[in-house]
């Protein structure tokens, strides 16, 4: 009974943060800000859902697959975000109007790929 309550709480938290991350994907002004909000919140949200599923199932094959999925998500999603941000900057996607500094464009010659 307690196990089910804790698992459902994790699933609620996960879905809430999924929703906030996707809202950030729609509202924020340029690619880099969208990437920040979406990567953080959606990674944490999906990991929360999977952890809830793991608690509800225990240590059988289903639960272990959920744990492995958490590990995959935590390892791959920051790397994907970093690669997309670098590719966007090198291919010349402009930053938002509110941007204050841009050291990366100052230091690197963007023609030189």
């Amino acid at each position: 009974m307690i196990k089910e309550t804790i698992g459902m709480i994790f699933i609620y938290i996960g879905i809430g943060f999924d929703f906030f991350g996707v809202l950030g994907l729609v509202r924020l002004p340029d690619v880099y800000n969208r990437l920040q909000a979406a990567t953080k919140c959606v990674t944490f949200g999906s990991a929360g859902i999977m952890f809830g599923v793991f608690i509800l199932n225990g240590f059988n094959s289903f639960g272990f697959k959920a744990l492995l999925g958490i590990a995959f998500i935590f390892l791959t999603s920051p790397v994907a975000a970093h690669v997309i941000a670098r590719a966007a900057h090198r291919s010349g996607v402009p930053l938002a109007k509110q941007t204050v500094v841009d050291d990366y464009a100052k230091d690197n010659d963007l023609k030189d790929l």
Partner: peptide
């Protein structure tokens, strides 16, 4: 970015 995020979202949905 959107396709990448959709992938992670669908993992949670499948769980």
């Amino acid at each position: 970015v959107a396709v990448d995020i959709l992938g992670i979202l669908i993992v949670g949905l499948l769980a």
